[in-house]
Write a protein that binds this DNA or RNA. Structure first.
Lengths: 93, 93
DNA sequence: ATTATAATTAGATGGTTGTCTAATTAACTA
DNA sequence: TAGTTAATTAGACAACCATCTAATTATAAT
């Protein structure tokens, strides 16, 4: 896992909001754009950073690109944070 | 909590290593510096970012500044990540 | 008061980020 | 083959970041 890019990706409120949106189901950039006050190229930039960090996955469906969460990387990151802080990570059922 | 500065702070390997060091007990910059290949002003800069993010606390003891972890902010951050990813956060005994 | 030690602050520099407009690629439709 | 829609890529720009050297502040010791 690329910790740097993961935390870097999480350090922007727009990107965290994208993740929250995706939590409720897969979405295309065209569906997301209404939730933000930025242009589509900026949104595309943010999606690219999330993709670099492996936090999201993109799949083409016709004209659309459908973005989904990549939950495993997220859970690894939480695990790493718990590790840094020394809290026992014995709750992975 | 200032999510931006917390994640920004975590996005640097030197700063994550500082946190791991502090996990084993409070330390002064002079004690930390040997673990890194950077100058003391750079270390001071990193400590300042961690302080801005409320991840560490500094207390003067004579000539020394003693840095400690601020665990509560860390746990809030983990909680926020679990929230973003929709995982139930029912393991806080 | 002077000197020494611990650490920060100031200032400079090269690299990265967030945003925009303009141009391009990709896929569908008629 | 155009024309349309969806989205990315290119290029520019101001702001921020990691690092360094040099200067400064704060405390202690003689």
């Amino acid at each position: 896992m690329k910790e740097n890019s993961v935390f870097q990706a999480l350090a922007d409120p727009t990107r965290r909001e994208i993740l929250r949106l995706l939590r409720n189901g897969d979405m295309t950039p065209g569906e997301m754009i209404g939730s933000f006050n930025i242009t589509q190229p900026s949104l595309s930039h943010h999606l690219n950073m999330l993709k670099q960090a492996d936090l999201v996955i993109a799949q083409r469906q016709g004209q659309n690109l459908v973005y989904s969460l990549n939950v495993s990387v997220f859970e690894e990151t939480v695990g790493m944070m718990l590790d840094i802080f020394g809290k026992k990570n014995n709750n992975k059922e």
